[in-house]
């Protein structure tokens, strides 16, 4: 059942004002409708995540103890979505084998994505969802450790802005793999 997790704020780039937003655990029909009716028409054709079927993945997650979905809502619309897997283990040498929250999918709504000609509407969606994954990791006794594979366009954001460790290219996934240690999680919340 969909459950409110916490209230946060997102920066509306156009107005310069922060607006209240809400993080929910488990998606519902409202999120599915937003994805089908608002997100899909807004994807530019080469969007690397436009094929992600959030509805099917969220429905599968309901029956799995390892999978959790989250939605970030603001101004009555779904601004971001995340799917995480809690049955995952660290690969980074300093924490190899320790439990972590693996971020399988994370996406912000098409209208929040900046292009060379236009800034996205809300800033902070990705950071809020990553913070949600870290909070979940702490709640589950995983110390804030998270892991994820990054699309090429997001690598510097994870490495430089969020402070995750780049574990290098993962041949199996054809993407770079990143991890956050428990110490990095503390730094994340301190900044």
């Amino acid at each position: 059942m969909k459950e409110h997790v916490r209230q946060v704020e997102l920066l509306n780039r156009a107005s310069g004002e922060f607006e209240p937003a809400d993080v929910f655990q488990e998606l519902d029909d409202k999120n599915f409708d937003d994805f089908d009716q608002l997100w899909k028409p807004g994807f530019s054709s080469p969007a690397p995540d436009s094929h992600w079927d959030w509805v099917a993945k969220a429905r599968h997650a309901v029956s799995s103890m390892a999978l959790e979905t989250f939605a970030l809502e603001c101004a009555e619309h779904t601004q971001g979505l995340m799917l995480v897997n809690l049955a995952s283990f660290a690969k980074l040498d300093s924490q190899r084998g320790r439990d972590l929250v693996y971020v399988e999918l994370l996406a912000t709504a098409p209208w929040n994505r900046s292009t060379p000609s236009q800034a996205g509407k809300y800033k902070g969606v990705g950071r809020v969802l990553i913070a949600t994954a870290i909070h979940l990791s702490i709640e589950q006794g995983f110390g804030g450790r998270i892991g994820l594979h990054s699309l090429p366009t997001s690598q510097s954001w994870y490495r430089v802005t969020l402070g995750l460790t780049d574990c290098g290219y993962d041949v199996a996934k054809d993407m770079h793999y990143f991890e956050m240690t428990d110490q990095q999680a503390q730094v994340f919340f301190a900044t």
Binding site: S64, M65, A66, L86, A87, D99, Q140, G141
Partner: peptide, 11 residues
């Protein structure tokens, strides 16, 4: 730990 064991067993 028990919760994680259940997740892994189910997975």
């Amino acid at each position: 730990l028990v919760r994680q064991a259940l997740r892994l067993y189910q997975s």
